[in-house]
Design a protein around this nucleic acid. Structure first.
Lengths: 249, 249
DNA sequence: CTCTTTCTGCGTATGCCATACGCTCTACTG
DNA sequence: CAGTAGAGCGTATGGCATACGCAGAAAGAG
């Protein structure tokens, strides 16, 4: 089986992504590389969504048989993990801004941009704490943004998880809804409008006074840009983090 | 087919959940109810996880054939939506606290409690904006908690989505990790510790100075309770919301 | 009371999916 | 040059959602 090696406890394919594991000289030369497999899978996901990524589809895209892939990846979820790593890509190079809030805002937007480029990543099931190269690199950069704050190391990590979780979740809702609307051939606006209409039909003013009041303002009909909710949430969270940092002085 | 009716645009099964749609007098009496089907599916998910919920498994649990279920539900994802609604259940009755922060904190904890009772809900794919009875009821209550603030209606909804998204995402990470650890037969502590060890092996101090520094404090080895991250994140977000409310005065 | 309509349950079939197993052939090591 | 580790892959197993159409039940229409 050999799902582990080198004492890292990582699956072999993930070790390969870190650049460990050189090829032993024996048998025939591999005809593929992990990179090509992951690229093919990413391509499929980008065009037809994560659901379209099957081992046989990836294999046929590469002109090999399904089972060949299992020489490179011991199970599909390893492939998914590697796809995720590839989708995030490396964080921007160079030093982050001196001011934590500037740097951290950049960081959050960078993550969001990566996710927007590959919306399917947010549907990759989480199975382990981040241990792929790019994930750890993004973590490194996030921590670096907070280097001049007086937060404890544990707090920094918590802030990181809070914000990256927010980015992921926001993207998940936004892009899943967008995809659902596209599937039904509607625009986001008409879809929101019909949702509002639906709620109006379902909610009476006695049992749902607050929803009724919110609907009456008509704000649901004008959803604004897809980034609006992201901007709003990020500002609130960073305000909260700022309060903590101030309290530590 | 009849996936829509009554002008709501909702699938028939969801309309049934709202109590619309009475039985037409004609054909044979249904041997099942939507409720029994959903209960069975929820039971399976609670015991063996969402992945174990298949149409055939649900059917055999009920002693009927697989295809019978399609008389009640037009596709599996309708069943999932109904399961989600059942898992959240109704929000607590009565008036929320006068003070928005008290009430809203209760609301967030209530959501978290519901999710903790049925951890699989967070893996139900999001396909539409909330339109099931309990989802709307939770929305109603969340808005009610903010009734004495000076936020605009759109802002209230944004705050709602921000916090409920946080609850969902936090639960997703926490419980997925817990499940992964259980699958490998490890405790959370030992698993976190081995993750820290792994990162130490993978990261050198030159390329990953911040991660190295964080690891050196040893804070990863003492994960604390599973609620710690939740409490931390919720406090930050509510601080941020409070800043907004103050700014509106 | 009978006929027609409408709805239920369900058997069967299709076409996906991940992946276990074991064979053949390759290319390097001793 | 022999031995062997590894590559590619054909086949098989056991899952899955769900389309289709049939048989029989229940209620209304005449």
């Amino acid at each position: 089986m050999a799902t582990e090696d080198s004492g890292t406890g990582l699956p072999t394919s993930i070790e390969a992504a870190w650049g460990l594991r050189e090829r032993p000289g024996k048998g025939p030369r591999p005809g593929l590389t992990l990179g090509r497999i992951v690229d093919a899978a990413v391509g499929i996901a980008s065009v037809d969504g994560l659901g379209a990524v099957s081992m046989s589809r990836v294999a046929s895209e590469l002109g090999v048989s399904t089972m060949s892939l299992y020489r490179y990846v011991s199970a599909k979820d390893e492939l998914l993990t590697l796809m995720e790593d590839a989708a995030y890509g490396p964080p921007p190079p160079g030093e982050p801004a001196e001011d934590w809030r500037t740097g951290f805002t950049d960081w959050a937007w960078g993550l969001r941009t990566a996710v927007a480029r590959h919306p399917w990543v947010v549907n990759v099931p989480i199975s382990t704490p981040p241990s792929t190269p790019n994930s750890v690199a993004w973590m490194e950069r996030g921590l670096a943004c907070l280097r001049h704050t007086n937060l404890g190391e544990g707090e920094k990590v918590s802030v990181l998880m809070l914000v990256s979780g927010f980015v992921r979740n926001e993207a998940r809702m936004t892009f899943d809804l967008l995809a659902a609307h596209r599937r039904k051939g509607q625009s986001l606006e008409s879809s929101m409008a019909s949702w509002a209409k639906l709620l109006e039909k379902l909610t009476d003013a006695e049992r749902f006074p607050a929803v009724t009041a919110a609907l009456r303002t008509g704000e649901f009909d004008t959803p604004g840009g897809p980034d609006d909710e992201f901007v709003f949430g990020l500002e609130r969270i960073l305000d909260g983090v700022e309060a903590l940092i101030s309290a530590r002085s």
